[in-house]
Design a protein around this nucleic acid. Structure first.
Lengths: 233, 233
DNA sequence: TCGATTGAGAGAGCACTGCTCTCGTTTTGA
DNA sequence: TCAAAACGAGAGCAGTGCTCTCTCAATCGA
């Protein structure tokens, strides 16, 4: 086993970084389905079989890019949150939404890899991706939890119907150590899915022929609806 | 030119139907990216080059499947609407939502083709797909328009800010001949994107490890939030 | 009815893909 | 110093989309 700081180990790390970098570039220009290990190898100046020393398969390269994407999105959200007053709960939620939209529009191919169609025959291995994948929703939950504790959210505190749903939500509440009521968890799950729905709609061009001078204006309206949907002022 | 009802023409139509049918089967089992003209040809008992007599390219087969999918989804929505009291506006909107979710869960691969990542290098030709693609949102608009005319929707009738957004919404209103106020158009666009966001989240498994005894229960909560978001009782 | 045109299918072939295997060469750690 | 490990190259297999040419049958006009 080579030492961690041996020339060979450092060269290996550099090659790994190059593979991810070139892979990201191909992803951005050609999309996930067209991502080719052979093309990455060519750009690296290697023969195709050589990259299999670093990446076990095309799917593993996809996993690397998935983790890379989740991390970058998480960083974008955290950066946006850094300049928001922590007691401005609606502002924090809005900032998260804007950050997700901004990153999605800037990196549509990676966004599609994370939130678009599952690549057939490929399932992102949970142990490698969930850690980075839950960062955004984690930040959202933090906002709702903080807002609830501060009494800034108006929502019913009664159990939802039917009881089996109430049980599931209560279990999630317990497992995550939350103090927000069940109804807010349900509303949070809605807001989470709806937020990405709005961003996906715009990134994938599903609005179709409807054109807007400044699409961000419409998104701000959507954000207001999202903030409203969880009972934030 | 062969007659429209000549044996050759009828055989050709049958072969076209077979191609779409087999293509749908492969789509369902292997996904869009793995859709292979050669495999379709094998299942048809033809050599690969022969199917090019019917379908110009793999992308054209995808287009056929896109149109087929939009039509099937539109039929599902129309069927669901047929058994709803037309004056029950919230019920109509709920029925549309349930139909979209039900179809998406039943046909995840086709759903992914329509609402997931755009296939790289492939853009669905608008002239062939938009006709079927706007059916669902068309039904939604009908509900909101009817509800507004019946006075069943509570929403501000003042122009939205900024003015450039107001102009765009007013233009859409004029072009579609709507009587609903601008704010309701914006809320409708939100509800549209959010609805498909919720369905996509479930079809693509983005809820992750959070499990529900009956996911439909959660979706019903989401539907309530959607109905609420457009100002319907 | 006959000849020309058209459509359909088969087969070969090109360039590409993911991936495996073997073969030398270089670097590493004991 | 030397065996082991890592590395890169190359060949090869099976699959892909797509094009080209060939043959044969169906169709249509005169």
């Amino acid at each position: 086993m080579p030492n961690d700081s041996s020339p060979r180990a450092r060269a290996r790390e550099q090659t790994m970084r190059d593979i991810v970098r070139i892979g990201r570039a191909h992803l951005a220009t050609d999309g996930a389905a067209a991502l080719s290990l052979r093309a990455v190898a060519r750009d690296l100046g290697l023969v195709s079989s050589a990259v299999y020393r670093y990446v076990a398969s095309r799917d593993e390269l996809l996993t690397l890019l998935v983790v890379d994407g989740y991390d970058e999105l998480g960083d974008a959200v955290d950066t946006a949150l850094a300049s928001v007053d922590p007691t401005d709960f609606a502002g924090r939620m809005t900032a998260i939404g804007r950050a997700v939209r901004g990153w999605g529009l800037a990196e549509p191919a990676t966004y599609a890899l994370l939130f678009g169609s599952p690549v057939p025959g490929y399932e992102a291995p949970a142990e490698q991706t969930t850690g980075s994948g839950v960062r955004v929703v984690g930040r959202l939950v933090e906002v709702w939890e903080d807002a609830w504790r501060a009494g800034a959210i108006a929502v019913d505190d009664e159990p939802l119907k039917p009881r089996r749903l109430s049980r599931d939500l209560a279990r999630i509440r317990r497992e995550m150590g939350l103090s927000v009521p069940e109804a807010l968890i349900a509303r949070g799950l809605f807001a989470w899915a709806a937020l990405f729905g709005c961003v996906t709609w715009e990134v994938f061009g599903q609005y179709g022929t409807a054109t807007f001078a400044e699409p961000a204006d419409l998104f701000e309206q959507h954000l207001a609806a999202l903030v409203e949907s969880v009972g934030l002022a």
